[in-house]
Simulated scan of single mutants.
Amino acid sequence: MRNYLLLAIIFTTLASIVISCQDARQVQQDMYYTNGRDLYIAYCQNCHGANGEGLAKLAPPLTDTLFLKSNKKKLACWIKNGVSEQMIVAGEKYEGKMPDHNFANIDIAQMIVYVTNTFGNKQGNYTQNEVAADLSNCN
């Protein structure tokens, strides 16, 4: 009887360990998110706000999930090369210029993961390889 009880305890312990573990992709997304948050605070928050609310008519909010989804392939280009074109976000026009930033692809990926998974957005992971592909298509 003692052996069965010991096996049951071991099985229960192992099962709880396996259930609580995240897969590698989720761990990567969580790391990107955390690093992206730090980069956002340092480089983006002054204009886009602590809550992604934007800055008057100069910097658009980052709370419009549909805008972010439909422009996800452009985000890396905008972060790397800046933006000077007019944008319409959530029905409002924004004409401020976003400066360019010479970030590494990993930094851009991390910022995009943070922005697209914060402020009411839930768009999942975004990798360095996706950044590289999107940057190769910048205008």
Rank of each mutant, 00 (worst) to 15 (best):
G36H: 10
Q26K: 12
R2I: 10
A132P: 03
T116D: 01
M31L: 10
N81C: 11
L62W: 01
T65E: 04
C47K: 01
E85N: 15
D134N: 11
L6W: 14
D107F: 07
R37E: 09
N137P: 09
Y33F: 15
K80D: 06
L62R: 01
I17T: 04
I108D: 06
L39K: 13
K69A: 15
Y32Q: 00
V27A: 05
G124H: 00
F119Y: 13
G49K: 10
V27M: 07
A59Y: 14
C138P: 01
A133N: 12
L5S: 05
Y94M: 02
D107P: 08
N125A: 13
V89L: 06
T12Y: 15
A109C: 08
I9F: 15
D107C: 10
N129W: 01
T34I: 06
N137F: 09
D100C: 08
Q28R: 09
Q86W: 01
T118A: 14
V115P: 04
I112R: 01
K93A: 15
N102T: 05
A90V: 00
T127H: 03
M98W: 03
Q22C: 03
P99W: 04
Q86S: 13
G54R: 04
N117Q: 06
A76N: 07
T127K: 07
T118F: 06
G120L: 03
V27D: 09
D100Q: 14
Q110R: 08
G54T: 05
E85K: 15
G82T: 11
V113N: 02
G54D: 10
K74I: 02
K122D: 15
T118D: 12
N125S: 12
L7N: 13
C138V: 00
L75I: 08
N81W: 10
C47S: 06
C44S: 10
P61I: 09
I88H: 07
Y126T: 00
V113K: 06
N139H: 14
T34D: 05
T63Y: 03
D134Q: 05
L66I: 14
K93T: 14
Q22N: 14
N71D: 14
S84E: 14
L135N: 02
T13N: 02
F103S: 11
P99A: 09
T118G: 08
I79E: 04
E85D: 15
K73E: 13
M31D: 04
F67V: 02
D107M: 11
C47F: 03
K97F: 06
A8I: 10
Q123V: 07
D64T: 13
A24I: 12
L55E: 12
N3C: 02
E95T: 13
V115I: 09
K93G: 12
A59W: 08
L58F: 14
A133D: 08
M87Q: 07
Y33A: 02
A133S: 07
G52I: 00
H101S: 11
